[in-house]
């Protein structure tokens, strides 16, 4: 069989869209070819990750300008808000006016609540939209970090005074024995820990503070994906370094530069009994 046709069929096979006769051919190929099996596994993993494709767009508030303009059009008070009407002069119909006004109101309500609810806002919007974001736990870690790092008294759930408890508690939740990494050589002092829940999985968040500056966190989660080397990413002003090893995903998040984070990441891993 033509190899490129075979790969095309493999995608349809993974999606459950290949007719039975061709599916049997693919299965024969898979049975005798380890590389094909690996390709299939990757495609299956990607399919999960792709469920959250452009998920950030779902969380964007629908532009208020849309609704504001249409609210005006509907009320027949077009003159009162001439500038808005200019922007959306194409939406003259009464019907679309009502529609987008409603959208604007929904957006204001949801947007307003989001400001206060932080992480919970994400969950609600996701649920209301379509499907949970399957893949991007790192993005969610960044969002949590941004919210929690502002806290003073409630920076952590369990303070560093109870380090042995933190180790046994989170070690059990993760099914991964560990010692809280000592990052004092980086000028970081352990403050304590918190358990987050992302995609239904417990996440251990270990929080550190530098002598002068904002919090840094090391987060650990179960991962079904295969090992991945350290990768530095950035989300707005936050830097992240993530990696996956032996069924666990790790990420270090903070305002330190990526080189610093990478060194911290490398130093942390050996505290976990992987």
């Amino acid at each position: 069989m033509d190899p490129s046709k075979q790969r095309e069929d493999l995608v349809a096979y993974v999606d459950g869209e290949l007719p039975a006769a061709e599916a049997r051919e693919i299965e024969t190929w898979l049975a005798g070819d380890a590389e094909a099996r690996e390709r299939r596994r990757h495609l299956q993993e990607d399919a999960l990750a792709l469920r959250g494709l452009f998920g950030a767009v779902l969380r964007e508030p629908v532009p208020a300008a849309l609704g504001a303009a249409l609210g005006a059009a509907r009320a027949g008070s077009a003159r009162a808000s001439g500038t808005m009407i200019e922007v959306f002069r194409r939406s003259r119909s009464r019907a679309i006016g009502t529609l987008l006004a409603a959208a604007a109101i929904a957006c204001l309500i949801i947007g307003g609540a989001g400001g206060f609810l932080g992480g919970r806002y994400e969950a609600r919007r996701e649920g209301a939209a379509v499907q949970p974001l399957a893949a991007n736990w790192i993005m969610q870690v960044a969002q949590y970090h941004r919210v929690y790092a502002r806290e003073k008294r409630h920076l952590v759930e369990v303070s560093a005074d109870e380090t042995p408890h933190i180790e046994s508690w989170l070690g059990k939740r993760l099914e991964l024995p560990f010692k809280v990494p000592d990052l004092s050589t980086f000028g970081l002092t352990f403050q304590g820990a918190r358990m987050l829940v992302i995609n239904g999985e417990p996440v251990a968040q270990l929080v550190y503070l530098p002598a002068d500056g904002r919090a840094l966190a090391l987060c650990v989660i179960h991962s079904r994906r295969e090992d991945e080397p350290l990768t530095a990413t950035q989300q707005d002003d936050l830097n992240l370094v993530d990696w996956r090893v032996k069924g666990y995903g790790f990420v270090v998040v903070g305002w330190e530069n990526p080189t610093e984070l990478r060194a911290i990441a490398e130093a942390s891993e050996k505290s976990f009994s992987l």
Binding site: F54, V62, T98, L99
Partner: peptide, 21 residues
């Protein structure tokens, strides 16, 4: 018509995402 409109409103975020793609 009202029901249709409210369904459309609920779809807006997803329509925008498809629009982005």
């Amino acid at each position: 018509e009202a029901a249709f409109r409210s369904e459309l409103v609920a779809l807006l975020p997803r329509l925008r995402r498809f629009g982005c793609s």
